[in-house]
Design a protein around this nucleic acid. Structure first.
Lengths: 241, 241
DNA sequence: ACTCCAATCTGGTATATACCAGATTATGGC
DNA sequence: GCCATAATCTGGTATATACCAGATTGGAGT
């Protein structure tokens, strides 16, 4: 029994889904062009785009600006409460990570950061902005604000790997307390541009604010993820075996 | 300096944002109709809708089916790792909660639940489906699957309050171990209908799988939130005062 | 082989128009 | 006052069309 009372674009959504399954399209493969799809499914490009947007919202496909539509890879599992480096858990899941440092600089603590970190406004602070890839798809950009009082000279190190690991191994820093915030938002401005996605693309924001044993501010991490790129997975307590 | 090289709908997005601020529109207030806005801003309804969709993605406004656009209330803070009842933390934040039980039934464990819970396929299981409001806006729907072995007769209780509290107070059950999963998705089917939103509306999925001290399955909680309704906030470790 | 540039392909933006379906409001009969 | 119903208002869906801008491709010239 088909749902013929559905709007066309929802029928198309389902037909496209079925078609993708039937064609066995897999991760990162390209769909036919919108014009071709609109002919094949006997409708207009506008309507096909509505259907494609649905599948995009569901995380089945994603768009690459003016290049086409592609099959979304499996979501990356991610536990923001653990201090595992990005590279490490990406590899653990059988993917291939890459990190680009877009800029790193020593700047002055702005008001908003002062309010959540406890640092005085104007205090020197490291600011690192990085883009992270999994299998050559850019999944997130990340701002790190690090207290240089605890790790002088950090900027001269390579920041293409785990900052957290560097803090631990080289500076013997270990966060004792953390505040984590997570919420969906729209990617815009610098974050959208850096990820090469359109303004307003759905994203997920993850913020981690870390303090040491004495309550001193260590680091702030603000991550902007593509909405379809990750699945947060947290385990609390021990599971008896 | 204005960004005149921006597409019209992004300029409109910003102008609408400014207009909303200037008009001091506040939580749950209604915007003028799309036709009126398209006249006021000298463009077509199609383009105004693109701009409105941007603001919707950013969480500034939300739509109520065929009634209009409204200002989104502040996000609710929510800590899925704690066992605070919904009603309690909503009230703590100065809002007014309400819960409707859409159905509750005794059914048989399906395959997918068996795989994550360890129950045998076909084992009796309680299934409760509820809708939760804050200030009379439906923010989420929630499926609860509860192991009746630990709490016989639960269905004859009222399920309009905290199931967790009932499990603790009446059945002395306390989860020792939990697996939590969170990811953005599109609301569709039953969940979209129950929240009176369009198919494909952005949402956030939160799943909690609870076991007792001996590793027995207690409860599965699957929550479907509106994307703009909550801010997950978790505190790890103690903050020295 | 290589570079450069033009042609072409892609999705992105924009306008105009029409009708539908649910929600709300106005109206008229009681 | 109340209730049923009709008119109206709202966003939702759909088609047709045009042009833009970035990405890719293909070919000419070296």
């Amino acid at each position: 029994m088909s749902r013929t009372d559905y709007p066309v674009y929802l029928q198309l959504r389902d037909r496209l889904w079925d078609w993708i399954e039937a064609e066995q399209l897999s991760s990162q493969q390209r769909l036919p062009s919108e014009r071709e799809l609109s002919e094949r499914f006997r409708t207009t490009r506008v309507t096909i785009r509505q259907a494609l947007s649905q599948l995009e919202a569901e995380g089945l496909i994603f768009r690459s600006n003016r290049r086409g539509w592609y099959i979304t890879p499996e979501r990356l599992r991610y536990d923001p409460s653990r201090d595992l480096g990005f590279n490490r858990y990406v590899i653990e899941q059988g993917f291939s990570p890459r990190t680009e440092t877009l800029f790193k600089t020593l700047t002055e603590t702005p008001v908003w950061l002062s309010e959540i970190s406890g640092l005085e406004v104007g205090t020197p602070i490291y600011h690192v902005f990085r883009r992270r890839y999994v299998d050559e798809r850019g999944l997130l950009v990340e701002h790190n604000y690090i207290n240089p009082a605890h790790c002088p000279g950090l900027l001269s190190e390579s920041t293409d790997l785990s900052i957290w690991q560097m803090l631990r191994d080289k500076y013997n820093l270990c966060p004792e307390h953390r505040d984590i915030e997570i919420y969906p938002l729209a990617l815009k401005g610098l974050e959208a541009e850096s990820l090469h996605v359109n303004q307003g693309t759905a994203g997920l924001y993850i913020q981690r604010l870390s303090f040491d044993q004495r309550g001193n501010f260590l680091e702030l991490d603000r991550e902007y993820w593509l909405h379809d790129a990750l699945k947060i997975s947290v385990r609390i307590g021990e599971r008896p075996s």
